[in-house]
Amino acid sequence: MSDIILKVDGLHKRFGKTEVLKGISFDLEKGQVLSIIGSSGSGKTTLLRCITSLETADEGRIEVDGNVIFDSASPVRDSKRETRRKQLSTGLVFQSFNLFPQYTALQNVELAVRLLAKERPDYKQNKKAIKAEIEKNAMELLRSVGLEDKAGNYPCELSGGQQQRVSIARALAPHPAVLFFDEPTSALDPLLTGEILKVIKQLAAGKMTMVIVTHEMSFAREVSDKVVYMQHGVIAEQGTPEELFDNPKSPEVRAFLNKFED
């Protein structure tokens, strides 16, 4: 079990009086893909936001790649620098891309890594080499999502699918241990979802550890090693795609999946 890279234990999150997460526990091995499915309001997005530190959970424990991100039993008190280092162990692809509009595709991918490189002690001496290295890596990432020729374009000049692919490259640039996707195709024209799913499949083939919140059932089935079904803030059922999609144990999962077959 030493290959566990993401471990979530007894996670609770409340917004005012509403308890959105009511004790979520799961783990994920390195190189695996986990899909989280469930109807709207079941807490899927909140779960991702807690793991990626956009929200602070109320109770429980989160560990990513050996880093304790959150622990209500012994609160984490990190320096700012340490917090940022841990932050970069996770990457997040947003539903609405959130690209930086004033930067080109390439600059979007490079920005965070460039700013981080400035803190390196050898940055001043090797400025040119470091910058060239960062650009090379960013171009490589854009190539891997099929957008090498759009490196110099601004987000407003790209289609939704292209923007989302840039945002995937941007999330990958700081080399996160686990990459999270929050409904990455929901804001897209159905014709454009295919190009995103293709990129995710390609990442899965490259053994990138990923957690994907999605409504694309056939895709989830095809790409995942593990599927989690969430309902009302709890994990109602989890298992392999075959278990969950072919032989769901609970009537809720069956009812949920039936809706998608129409």
Partner: peptide, 30 residues
Amino acid sequence: IPQGQYEACKVLGMTKSQTFFRVVLLQVVK
């Protein structure tokens, strides 16, 4: 400025001042 811009900066490990000066400011000026 949409909240998503701040969130994108945060998950990319950018500091608050980097977020403001590198990402938010020019959009505000525009």
